[in-house]
């Protein structure tokens, strides 16, 4: 260790992993449905894509977690984005769609309407 900059580099790299462990006061929760139906429909790559993408962009205020079946199994994988009282439900998600939700919704604040349950329910 020859400089503080070296220490900072290690810290920044290690932080993403340890940061997950704090009791986060995150204001946004991303919940991926991970019951049997969700997993069968491919929820795990979706969950992992969210985790990777959120970490890659260093988003601090977002907690990615899993949840059970919410009862709309035909639309799995289902992802809910919860911001305070507001809940957006995305359905039939894929890893690619997850990346776009992170970019458009979580970073830029515009809901990806075409992936939501409203757009897919017809």
């Amino acid at each position: 260790m020859k400089s503080l900059a070296e220490l900072q580099a290690i810290r920044d790299k290690a932080r993403a992993q340890v940061g997950l462990r704090a009791e986060s006061g995150a204001s946004v929760r991303v919940q991926v449905g991970m019951a049997t139906c969700g997993i069968a429909a491919g929820a795990r790559p979706v969950l992992n894509a969210f985790v990777e993408e959120v970490a890659k962009r260093g988003l601090q205020d977002i907690m990615v977690t899993q949840t059970g079946c919410i009862g709309i199994c035909q639309y799995e994988p289902v992802v809910e984005v919860i911001e305070g009282d507001k809940k957006t439900t995305y359905v039939k998600m894929t890893a690619e769609k997850a990346v776009r939700v992170v970019n458009d919704h979580l970073v830029n604040g515009s809901v990806v309407t075409e992936y939501t349950i409203g757009a897919n329910a017809q």
Binding site: M1, L4, L7, I10, R11, K13, A14, R15, Q17, V18, G19, R21, A22
Partner: peptide, 24 residues
């Protein structure tokens, strides 16, 4: 909170920052 056998985790929670500050 951290893995005590992994120095990176200690550094992640601001470990060795105080020493760096003091020395520099």
């Amino acid at each position: 909170v951290i893995n005590p056998e992994n120095i990176d985790e200690y550094i992640a929670v601001d470990g060795y920052q105080a020493l760096g500050k003091v020395l520099t």
